[in-house]
């Protein structure tokens, strides 16, 4: 994903560790999370982001990656010189329940009659000094914690077992993980020994006015619409834990806002971009639709 220039997004490709954000991602700080993250990065303390889905965790990490600068060493005519400051590369890994340690570290692949070692995304981030963002880390298999532990304490070391190597992380490398305490079952909680290696920043959906502003900015919809969407989200979130696993995320609100901007009627837009994605339960769908129809006239 990229926040590249508006008109046409051409096909582009990066090596995982070279992906950098070129434009400032839009992010509205709600509290002091920017400062906290900055301090953590300065001190090489890994960060744990907690919060419900679609409340801006990923956007925040992009925003931080863009703003955290680091001298970029450029080799020119055989001599290294520090030329510019560049933002940090960002390696994002979405974790799933079959994600194993070797998916992160790397593996041998067969090529011709030989095997070739391919670095995994975590290894690349360690080498490149990038921010490595493991999204929904509790979903991954437990063996990944074996990797996380030495990387997240003072050692900052990644053991590459199959190659019998240890990698010392380059400056700038920071492990960031996220998890959503809401819907994981008790089984999938993070272990204390893992948790206690991170500073944690808690996210929640922004307050109504802020959220409205975000929705307005991201979707380009009318401020009134944005405010109504934010109000509606607030109401729907009241149903969390009472039939709804999660409240309506800011992301969905933005989708709705965009649909409305495109000329879809607000009620319909909310239906397709909020109600239906949120739940399959007919009764709850209707309840939410009643909330929607109370807030929007058509």
């Amino acid at each position: 994903m990229t926040t590249a220039a508006e008109p046409i997004t051409e096909y582009r490709s990066w090596a995982v560790e070279e992906f950098r954000l070129e434009e400032e991602p839009y992010y509205v700080p709600v509290q002091d999370e920017v400062d906290i993250f900055q301090s953590a990065w300065n001190n090489k303390i890994p960060v744990l982001l907690k919060g419900p889905t679609g409340c801006g965790k990923t956007r925040f990490i992009e925003y931080m990656a863009y703003h955290l600068n680091r001298p970029l060493a450029v080799v020119r005519d055989g001599k290294a010189e520090i030329e510019t400051e560049s933002n940090l590369p960002l390696v994002t890994v979405a974790c799933h329940e079959d994600l194993t340690a070797s998916d992160l570290v790397g593996r041998y692949l067969l090529e011709g009659n030989e095997t070739v070692w391919i670095d995994g995304p975590l290894t690349r981030a360690v080498k490149a000094g990038a921010i490595c963002y493991l999204d929904e880390v509790v979903e991954a298999r437990k063996d990944t914690t074996v990797l996380i532990h030495p990387l997240t304490d003072h050692r900052r070391i990644l053991p590459v077992e199959k190659k019998s190597q240890l990698l010392q992380a380059r400056d700038g490398f920071l492990l960031v993980i996220s998890f959503n305490p809401g819907y994981q079952s008790a089984l999938k909680d993070l272990k204390q020994s893992t948790r206690q290696r991170f500073v944690a920043i808690e996210f929640d959906y922004p307050p109504r006015e802020t959220e409205a502003e975000i929705v307005r900015h991201e979707s380009g919809c009318d401020p009134d619409i944005a405010l109504n969407l934010a109000k509606m989200a607030e109401k729907i979130r009241n149903l969390r834990e009472h039939g709804l696993a999660e409240g309506a995320s800011t992301r969905l609100l933005i989708y709705a806002g965009r649909m409305i901007t495109q000329g879809v009627s607000p009620r319909r837009a909310c239906q397709v971009s909020i109600v239906w994605p949120l739940t399959d339960d007919g009764e709850i769908q209707r309840s939410i639709e009643e909330v929607v129809s109370s807030i929007f006239e058509e």
Partner: peptide
């Protein structure tokens, strides 16, 4: 009633 209950819960945030 269940529909209205959810609706009211959404509106008020109260159970």
């Amino acid at each position: 009633s269940e529909l209205i209950r959810m609706y009211c819960k959404a509106l008020t945030g109260i159970d």
